[in-house]
Amino acid sequence: MRGLKDKVVIVTGGGGGIGSATCHRFAQEGAKVAVFDINEATAKSVAGAIEEAGGVARAFACDITDHEAVETAVAAAEAALGPVTVLVNNAGWDVFRLFKDTTPADWQKLIAINLIGPLNMTHVVLPGMLRRRAGRVVSIASDAARVGSSGEAVYAACKAGMLGLSKTLAREHARAGLTFNVVCPGATNTNLFAEYKKGAGNPEKLEDAFRRAVPMGRIGEPEDLPGAILFFASDDAAFITGQVLSVSGGLTMAG
């Protein structure tokens, strides 16, 4: 894709399934990748694999729920790789229970990771992007934000917040040359989905139900997501902002 070579990209949750696949794909396109993850070991593993393959990557341990920690990590990433051009808000967490069975402690953690975290990341990288009048922010939400999902009420609410945030920032900063877009995965074969299946009591039955519901006949894989993410980050999407794209094999077809 056009315009990704030598760009500096931060991917949060870069040590996980979708995050790792996205980091590798950016590196293959010639970008310099800052792998952000709360788990330093997984971040280092991904960055190391990229460098072994000839790419440029650095690992940064970062708790995105802590604004000061985000400031420190972003400063370190820019010192190592250069000014941040692309931010991918990918990190997320969920607890799979009916809303009546959740607790305020659950809500606080869900909101901290899935909404406050992206707010912190975007807030810290935004001033530099505005000064340079260039930047792409791609946030990974969920189709749960668009159509709902049983057992994910607060998660869905947070992800819906990401849609509203991205559209608003897209309007606020369009004339400064910045774009804000959202990718919404459907059911995807990640650790998060594995935890979701465990909460259902019958994981095999649930996965089979999802598979049958998806028109393409399978659960998504992490490698299905980077194409959409990199498209929004690339020069090919320079005139696209405030948009939401589902990557779900047709499970949802919201307009």
Rank of each mutant, 00 (worst) to 15 (best):
N114F: 10
G148P: 06
L178C: 01
D224E: 13
K7V: 08
A21G: 15
T122Q: 05
R136V: 00
A69C: 07
R146D: 10
D106T: 04
R218S: 10
L130Y: 15
D143V: 13
L169K: 02
E51D: 07
M121W: 05
V9S: 11
A187D: 13
A141P: 04
T122E: 03
N114G: 10
D106R: 04
L115T: 07
V137Y: 01
P104I: 04
P203H: 00
I219C: 02
T22M: 10
A53K: 12
A153E: 01
I50K: 07
A238M: 11
Q28N: 09
T42S: 03
V125A: 01
R175C: 11
V70I: 03
R218Q: 08
A209G: 13
P203Y: 00
A153I: 01
V74L: 01
V183H: 12
G14D: 06
G255T: 10
W93Y: 15
V33G: 10
V9P: 06
S45L: 12
H173A: 07
E71Y: 05
V182G: 11
I38H: 07
P226S: 00
A112E: 00
K7G: 08
L251Q: 01
R133V: 11
P185M: 03
H173E: 05
G19F: 03
G250D: 02
W107S: 10
K198V: 14
K198G: 14
K7D: 08
L110Q: 11
P226I: 02
A145F: 13
M216E: 10
R58M: 09
Q108R: 14
F96T: 04
C23F: 03
A49I: 08
S139P: 09
N189V: 06
T65Q: 13
G135V: 00
K197E: 07
A21R: 04
S139M: 09
V183G: 02
K100R: 15
S150K: 14
Y155K: 10
V11N: 15
F239H: 09
L4R: 08
F36K: 06
G3H: 08
N202Y: 09
G249L: 06
D236N: 01
I116K: 14
N90A: 10
D101T: 11
I229G: 09
L119Y: 12
W107I: 07
D66N: 15
D66T: 10
L110A: 02
A21P: 09
E71I: 03
D6S: 13
L192R: 08
A200I: 11
A194C: 00
G82A: 09
K100M: 14
A73Y: 05
A153D: 02
G117F: 06
G13A: 09
A59L: 14
P185L: 06
